[in-house]
């Protein structure tokens, strides 16, 4: 009897948290997104807010653009992070290895805001890179590198790096060197060993890293707004705009729900394609 009481005492906070702050709010947001505003205080249930999304090219263009740029950012992050992770996990030795890994982690303990601010100082017209280009003679006048898509990409990739490097180093670390040697002994070259031994082994890390990075890019607001300026056209900006500027919460909720569906669909597909599940991919996070 006493044990049962203890069980309910442990269960209560979890249920309060999950139902009060996650499940019920999302259900409520879904119902709000089905409300069509006819006049002040006059609503009817319809799919009008979703129809508005498909009828207004600005909305779905922004949506598609956000998705495509997030996928691109995820791929670039993976390409940049993989060689570095391999170096840390397999080639660096002892103390250097620990130092390099810590150096990878440190920048990400600093607020995303500060990191983005750093890129603004580097890339703006009066910034460090522009001066460097003029000083070396590569540019004749100040160069504005802020407020375009490439800048948004630089910021997204930078912000995402940690979430790719950590899972990659963890999985590559567990790759037995003997397997790599065996690959060479059997006549493989660097490329075929990489393709047939290293990458298959690192797949769980690649998938969990990519999922997290993609999600973070999709839901990012700060980086596209500050680095992309007015032309950033990021979908989270549309959500913010509907909620805060236009006070059209019904439309904003519909946008929020569409973003949620997109992000869940990609996470689900990623897990399906590689035969993993959420518990093994995310649950391991705590053991890092």
């Amino acid at each position: 009897m006493k044990k049962r009481l203890g069980f309910y005492l442990l269960l209560a906070p979890l249920l309060l948290w999950l139902f009060g702050l996650i499940i019920v709010p999302h259900i409520d947001m879904f119902f709000l997104s089905l409300q069509e505003k006819l006049g002040p205080g006059d609503y009817q249930t319809s799919l009008a807010n979703y129809a508005a999304f498909f009828n207004e090219p600005l909305y779905w263009n922004t949506f598609a653009r956000t998705a495509i740029m997030s996928i691109l950012a995820t791929m670039i992050t993976l390409l940049i992070a993989f060689p570095v992770s391999y170096y840390i996990a397999k080639l660096a030795q002892g103390r250097i290895r620990a130092v390099l890994f810590t150096l990878c982690l440190l920048p990400f303990w600093v607020s995303e805001l500060v990191r983005t601010f750093g890129w603004m100082i580097l890339l703006r017209e009066t910034g460090v890179l522009s001066h460097l280009l003029q000083w070396t003679g590569l540019a004749g006048q100040p160069v504005e590198m802020l407020y375009n898509d490439a800048t948004i990409m630089v910021g997204l990739v930078y912000t995402s790096m940690l979430f790719m490097v950590v899972p990659l180093v963890t999985t590559l670390d567990s790759l037995d060197n003997a397997h790599v040697e065996a690959g060479y002994d059997l006549g493989g070259n660097g490329w075929s060993v990489l393709r047939e031994i290293v990458i298959p082994h690192a797949m769980p890390g690649i998938v969990s890293g990519s999922i997290v990075v993609f999600m973070l890019c999709l839901g990012n607001y700060l980086t596209p707004i500050l680095l992309g300026g007015k032309s950033s056209l990021w979908f989270t900006e549309q959500i913010y705009d509907q909620f805060i500027t236009r006070f059209n919460w019904e439309q904003g909720s519909a946008f929020g729900f569409l973003l949620l569906i997109l992000s869940s669909a990609i996470v689900w597909t990623g897990l399906r394609l590689t035969g993993q599940n959420l518990s093994s991919t995310m649950g391991d996070g705590g053991e890092r």
Binding site: L21, I22, P25, H26, D28, M29, I211, V212, M215, L218, G219, Y221, T236, I239, Y240, F243, G252, S253, G256, L259, L260, S263, S264, V267, L278, M282, G285
Partner: peptide, 11 residues
């Protein structure tokens, strides 16, 4: 962990 932060906020 897989819900974008901005959606947690608005919901």
């Amino acid at each position: 962990l897989v819900v974008p932060g901005i959606i947690l906020g608005i919901s």
